[in-house]
Simulated scan of single mutants.
Amino acid sequence: MQNSRRTFLKQAGLGLSAAFLSPYLFSCGNSKAGNSPFHNLGVQLFSVRDLISQDPTKTLETIAKIGYKHVETFGVDAANEKFWNLPVDELKKVLDDNNLKTHSGHYDMSKYLSRKHEEKENIEKYIEIAHKLGQEYVIAPVTPMDDLNNLQVEDYQYAAEQLNKAGEMAQKAGIKVGYHNHFWEFRTFANGTKGLDILIAFTDPNLVHFELDLYWTEKAGFSPQSYFEKYPGRFNLWHVKDMDKQFTKPVIGEEFDKSGFMDIMKEIRYTEVGSGAIDFINIANYAEKAGLKYAFVEQDDIYMPNKFESLKKSYDYVQKFLAK
Rank of each mutant, 00 (worst) to 15 (best):
N3Y: 07
R5A: 14
R5I: 10
F8H: 09
G13C: 10
G15H: 07
S22Y: 12
S22L: 10
F26N: 13
S27L: 03
S27H: 01
C28E: 15
S31K: 09
G34H: 09
G34E: 03
P37Q: 03
F38T: 01
F38S: 04
F38R: 07
L41E: 02
R49W: 00
D50F: 03
Q54E: 13
P56R: 06
K58V: 05
E61V: 12
T62W: 02
I63F: 06
I66K: 05
G67C: 04
Y68H: 00
T73F: 13
F74W: 06
F74E: 04
D77W: 00
A78Y: 09
F83C: 11
N85G: 11
D97E: 15
L100P: 02
K101F: 11
K101I: 03
K101C: 01
K101S: 12
K101Q: 13
S104Q: 13
H106C: 05
Y107G: 06
Y107F: 15
D108T: 05
Y112V: 00
S114E: 02
I123H: 02
I123S: 05
Y126C: 10
H131T: 14
G134D: 11
V138P: 12
P141V: 00
M145T: 13
D146F: 13
N149L: 08
Q152V: 13
V153I: 15
E154Y: 12
Q162L: 04
G167I: 00
E168L: 12
K172E: 14
I175A: 08
K176V: 00
Y179A: 07
F183N: 09
W184K: 06
E185F: 06
F186Y: 08
T188K: 15
T188Q: 15
F189P: 10
A190I: 01
A190E: 14
A190R: 14
G192Q: 02
K194H: 10
G195N: 08
D197A: 02
I198Q: 03
I200D: 04
A201Q: 09
V208G: 08
H209T: 04
D213S: 06
K219H: 11
A220W: 04
G221Y: 03
G221E: 03
G221F: 01
F222M: 13
S226A: 15
Y227R: 06
K230R: 14
K230V: 07
K230D: 05
Y231Q: 07
P232N: 09
G233K: 01
R234A: 08
L237K: 08
W238E: 01
M243D: 04
T248F: 06
G253A: 12
F256D: 01
D257A: 11
G260W: 07
M262F: 10
K266I: 02
E272I: 01
A287G: 00
E288T: 15
K289M: 14
Y294R: 09
V297D: 03
E298S: 00
Y303V: 10
F308C: 11
Y317G: 06
Y317K: 13
Q319L: 05
K320M: 09
F321Q: 11
F321T: 04
A323F: 05
A323L: 01
K324I: 03
